[in-house]
């Protein structure tokens, strides 16, 4: 049995919000926008809970890094079923490499047996932090997981790859990142939201880790993607095929 699973989670602009680029091109508008837990992270929390329910793990610790507003996301993790939460507090927007360095420090202190996290956050779409954390810890990794089976100190993880599916066998401790089809997260219920308020949530200032958080990237500009010209609605299959042949010239 794994004593502790750590699930790092991120607060992001909600999946259903259509983001707008700020007029000064410094980023996207996040003020007064609905925020939620990154959907892939929700899948990670759910997977950890299922492992605990199956008697494969004892404790689930959720961690987030950000301003005090990020505590809301930790409370969601606790309401879903995590046991304990750590909030690493910072006002800076950190790049994945720095996030991975902070997480490594926490993992070193907490002695986790397994880390499950989302494969990417739907804000910057980087898809880096899990792999970086695995490298820094010198642990094996299984990214894009669609199935996780634990037995003894081994994890058999089915991964979604470009050509189909691949299974990797990892010797734990290990890092697993979740893909969409790993599970369907449960809904948070009101009694569990109430219970979550009593679960322990510790705050650690990011500065206490003595890490260098100087950004490696400078964002020069954030802009709207190129617009597509508006198209036409055709009346029939015959007209469509004619347009494709003679106007767009994409079929013969």
């Amino acid at each position: 049995m794994i004593m502790k699973i750590i699930v790092p989670i991120k607060r992001v602009v909600d999946y259903n919000v259509k983001v707008r680029v700020k007029s000064d091109k410094s980023g996207v508008e996040t003020a007064n926008v609905k925020m939620s837990m990154n959907p892939f992270d929700e899948i990670a929390v759910e997977e950890a809970i299922r492992l605990r329910e199956a008697g494969k793990a004892q404790e689930i610790l959720v961690i987030t890094i950000g301003t005090s507003a990020a505590q809301e996301t930790l409370r969601t993790g606790l309401a879903l079923g995590a046991d304990r939460a750590i909030h690493v507090e910072t006002a800076s927007a950190l790049e994945p490499i720095n996030v991975a360095k902070i997480l490594k420090k926490v993992v070193d202190q907490e002695k986790a047996g397994l880390i499950i996290m989302g494969k990417q956050a739907i804000d910057d779409d980087s898809n880096q932090t899990g792999q970086m954390l695995a490298a820094l810890l010198d642990w094996p990794q299984a990214t894009f997981a669609s199935k996780v089976e634990l037995s003894g100190d081994q994890a058999n993880v089915t991964r979604e790859i470009d050509g189909g599916l691949e299974t990797v066998t990892l010797t734990m401790p290990a890092v697993i990142t979740t893909d969409l089809r790993l599970n369907e997260p449960r809904y948070v219920t009101l009694p569990n939201i109430m219970k979550a308020k009593k679960k322990p949530l510790d705050t650690i200032p990011a500065d206490s880790f003595n890490l260098d958080f100087d950004p490696r990237h400078q964002i020069l500009e954030v802009s709207e993607p190129p617009e597509r010209g508006s198209g036409i609605v055709v009346e029939s299959v015959e007209q469509l095929v004619d347009k494709l042949k003679n106007e767009a010239k994409v079929i013969q």
Partner: peptide, 13 residues
Amino acid sequence: IYAGNAMAKIKSR
């Protein structure tokens, strides 16, 4: 970024 709803121009140091 944001599923292609914005484009970020970044300079690496």
